[in-house]
């Protein structure tokens, strides 16, 4: 096991930031902690990177205990905190050089590891980090976290505040890093990114709701979900909520995700009901369960 977390709890001034959390990450795995702001993701990251000590529970990273062997961990992990922790007044190259020297290495020693990412920002190597776009900052921060060839990489919300193109490129990079044998623990509030992980833990209010592969996790959802649309979204939601057999009604992009309390639900019935409520352009079709649906069901 590359990361092993057992019954970790952490309280800040009465707030239970992390509550009895356990999970394991295998070597070479890309593991995602998925949850909204304030779910406890950052606290877990800080405990695992030896920046905080848990009130209860134990954890090991790369075989080292996070409290007793914190020095060894600091030699073997790469960490990219939520805010891209770069020196804004240093250039791209100077930042990278600095992080290389403090880890006792050089840019060239592990160049093959960062090459793919670095070539994208190399044209701007003399630009100050503060003047880079969000996507480029993110790439530079990743290079800095990788420069000493860590065994385990911790990425805390690496895609927050980054445009969709950079986000996509970033996840492609993570996949390739994973193939080089690096274990990656990543956190994100975006459910759509969950699908790109090998396994995920859904987390809310400091508690883990479920751990599984993205493909399996949606199977925990007990019901069939229907996409429903009509001309007036607001009235559609109102009508569905007053339908006596409704189990859940959530707006979901251009549709409403609807589930029924009954197992033998017939969409036709709902069609008639909505027509009776004067809805126009009604469309009802069964849809695939998403991780977001599962998350909502688990936090309900």
């Amino acid at each position: 096991m590359s990361i092993s977390v057992q019954n970790i709890s952490k309280t800040f001034k009465k707030v239970n930031a992390v509550n009895d959390v356990s999970f394991e990450v295998k070597e070479g795995e890309l593991f995602g902690l998925i949850g909204p702001d304030g779910a406890g993701k950052t606290t877990i990251f800080r405990i695992l990177t030896t920046l905080l000590i848990a009130d209860k529970g134990t954890a090991t990273v790369a075989g080292f205990d996070v409290v007793a062997d914190y020095k060894s961990i600091r030699n073997h992990v790469g960490y990219m905190p939520g805010k891209f922790s770069l020196y804004q007044d240093l250039t791209v190259e100077e930042n990278l050089e600095f992080f290389a020297t403090i880890f006792g290495t050089t840019i060239y020693e592990n160049y093959d590891l960062i090459k793919e990412i670095y070539v994208q920002i190399e044209p701007f190597k003399n630009r100050r980090a503060g003047k880079l776009s969000g996507g480029m900052k993110q790439k530079l921060a990743l290079c800095c976290a990788l420069i000493h060839k860590p065994k385990v990489l911790f990425l805390d919300e690496p895609t927050t505040g980054v445009d969709p193109v950079s986000r996509k490129e970033f996840w492609e990079m993570l996949k390739r890093l994973q193939q080089k044998g690096i274990t990656i623990l990543v956190s994100t509030p975006y459910m759509d990114e969950a699908e790109l992980c090998d396994r995920i833990a859904l987390i809310q209010h400091g508690k883990i709701l479920q751990i599984d592969t993205p493909q399996e996790i949606v199977k925990y959802y007990p019901k069939n979900i229907y996409d429903i649309s009509a001309d007036n979204m607001y009235k559609l939601i109102e009508s569905l909520k007053s339908f006596k057999h409704h189990y859940s009604v959530y707006p979901f992009g251009e549709f409403v995700h609807y589930t029924d309390t009954r197992n033998d639900f017939n969409p036709q019935e709902l069609q008639y009901y909505l027509e009776s409520k004067n809805h126009t352009n009604i469309k009802i079709k069964i849809t695939k369960t998403t991780i977001e649906d599962t998350f909502m069901e688990l936090t309900k």
């Binding site: 909204p36 702001d37 779910a39 459910m191 979204m233 959530y250 977001e292 909502m296 936090t299 309900k300």
Partner: peptide, 21 residues
Amino acid sequence: TSGVDPITRRQFWEMIYKTAN
């Protein structure tokens, strides 16, 4: 609604739909 949990986010969009309506 960035960073908000999915349920709160839905409730927020419902408020927006209502206001728009």
